[in-house]
Design a binder for these strands. Structure first.
Lengths: 202, 202, 202, 202
DNA sequence: TATGAATGAGCCTTCATTCAT
DNA sequence: CATGAATGAAGGCTCATTCAT
């Protein structure tokens, strides 16, 4: 990867193209898996040539890092911003779930890649910052549940398992969500929160 | 792959070894991903030699098929057996979830592989029967929810989304479940069903 | 590189072929330089196929290491053996120079490679043991000169420069020595020692 | 490479920059070898941009030619100038060795590159003029030894081997000479000549 | 004059698989 | 039965060079 141009005009074009490359990588990794994606798949997805691709990336793994950073960094920032404001645990939970599902909806491919490579991420020391981001997010979410229990708003003997249930159902959304589908991300979030709060028993 | 021996004694040993190979493949695929696993990884995991491995398999992809069949076939059989018996929707739901999580608990690696390769499975015609099995399972599970709603036992405006929520939380278990953990698979199943039925609102 | 076979017969053949590969590498590196040699050059020189080459080596750099080890290890061993025995400084000098030039004569390619890659060797931490071997050899040789001076056998105000002169003339031999040439390695050694001791002034 | 500017001011700047590029190439080739040096290494060493570099050179190989010409041409000219004057063989030898080592001292990188690429130079027809220059220099130097023997000033049964010894020790200087070292190039030359003439025997 | 995006051939290496022994 | 040597296609990546701007 050559260093980015310094002249503003070229710099802007460079950044734009680079973002396209990362987006194409996210899409392709999501479809074929990271290891299942060849550089040729990526050049087909970007329209660049084999060598040209390397203007915009350091290598395949750097692309994976970029995809996962694009997923985690804004989500974590958004999460922290929401939790900075005062609200009841229920409101925090709802706001967080909405933000989360909206982020997944706009980053479906990224999320699918994250789910696919989860195991690799756990093993390799190179991915520490991604693991840390995931853990931070889960802790912040778990904290909301915990405070809800302590405040008497939520009733559950096992907040940890509740957290895992919520993580499972929300993250799974990436596998089936369709942008033009019946429900918006916000609606899905609300229904999930309702489900979690009230259940379905008649 | 040479054809299996016919003499019973040799046949038995052959089958045993083959099962070990599939188990090792499941473990290794789960850790490194299917594409990320090399034949060398498999010979390291099995202790066989390069050539020896090919006595027990037709190739890497055949191994993936075997892993996924070991996951889907018994689960589907078990599911059908449970649904064959008469029970309330709630009892069916609970029995199904228990069987499902117990199966995941004993087939964690298989399930992780399934989750990882999900996208590949959707794309390639070679995987039709795996896709069909997954779809059948989801339909059977969805049917229980549907009947519960129709019978007035469950109250939900969107059984399909409820199904997706349940799929998400249950399948996610494979990512974190530990055999010697605090909760048994059965307990997890029960708490998930309780959660789904009653929610956590105080 | 696959691990060497354990069965003696196969092991022997493996070792023999591996030695051939290293020899071919030495020859080719000497002709074209290490960086100038492609894997295709090596397969042409060995008769192996592209993939087959990797049965006998870990990679191109491992081959370079093997070449340099084949050069340094026996020379250093021989040097130490010679210095273990008692002798006058002049006899030690002569014996050492003979051994050295004979070694160069039978390892011309190795020596040429060493001379070519000298600078790279100095820079990269990966080559520490090669650097150490070179330094040890030079110290042992320098010690002989030093002791000769102390014993009053050699008269030189600058043993270090004398060492460098000797190193220069001897190592240069690899560049022009021809196995079937007018002079044997032993004769060259003797003449170099005579030159060093007595000069050419009429 | 664009053709050099014709307007004197621009021309001068062009020539200056071009000389810097060749110097940087010598330095980098010496450190990493010719084949081991990439264009990126050269742009890093010159501070030019990728495209800018090609304003001052025709390509990588042209740079190598320039480096070697800078080494050989002045040395040969100087050698011929010295030999043009009348002197005893000993004085000629001393003057030549001084000039030679002083040239090496101011062209260490060039000399290192020459030593490294020696084998390549021998093989490729493109390098005929470099080979011819080397051969001419060696012949001129050998001639001095030869005449010394014929004049009865030098006593050696093998002037050719003596020449090779001298070439070895002198050329090797490039590998260890340090500009600010203990000895000047002239001093080294004198000691080498003394050594060659008188030896070190007490 | 100077830039840096773009090229595509070629680099070293790994791969799943076959087959003579 | 079992071995491991051998294959050659394909992998990710770097290269020297060109050229529109």
């Amino acid at each position: 990867m050559s260093s980015p141009p310094t002249r503003p005009v070229l710099r802007a074009r460079y950044e734009r193209r680079r973002a396209e490359v990362v987006a194409a990588a996210a899409r392709t990794f999501a479809q074929r898996g990271y290891h299942g994606t060849s550089i040729d798949d990526l050049i087909a997805a970007t329209g660049l040539t084999r060598g040209g691709l390397y203007h915009y990336m350091d290598g395949k793994e750097a692309l994976l890092i970029a995809v996962l950073d694009e997923l985690m960094d804004p989500l974590l920032a958004r999460t922290r911003a929401i939790l900075d404001g005062p609200a009841t645990p229920e409101d925090h939970l709802r706001a967080l779930t909405r933000a989360w599902l909206e982020h997944i909806a706009t980053h479906r491919d990224h999320m699918v890649v994250f789910n696919q490579e989860r195991r690799t991420l756990e093993r390799d020391p190179a991915w520490k910052h991604i693991r840390a981001a995931r853990r931070d997010f889960e802790r912040l979410l778990g904290g909301v549940l915990q405070r809800g229990v302590e405040a008497g708003a939520f009733r559950t003997t096992d907040p940890q398992l509740t957290l895992l249930a919520l993580l499972g159902m929300a993250n799974y959304t990436a596998q089936w969500y369709a942008p033009r589908g019946r429900l918006s991300a916000e609606q899905i979030a609300d229904r999930y929160v309702d489900l979690l709060l009230d259940g379905i028993r008649a």
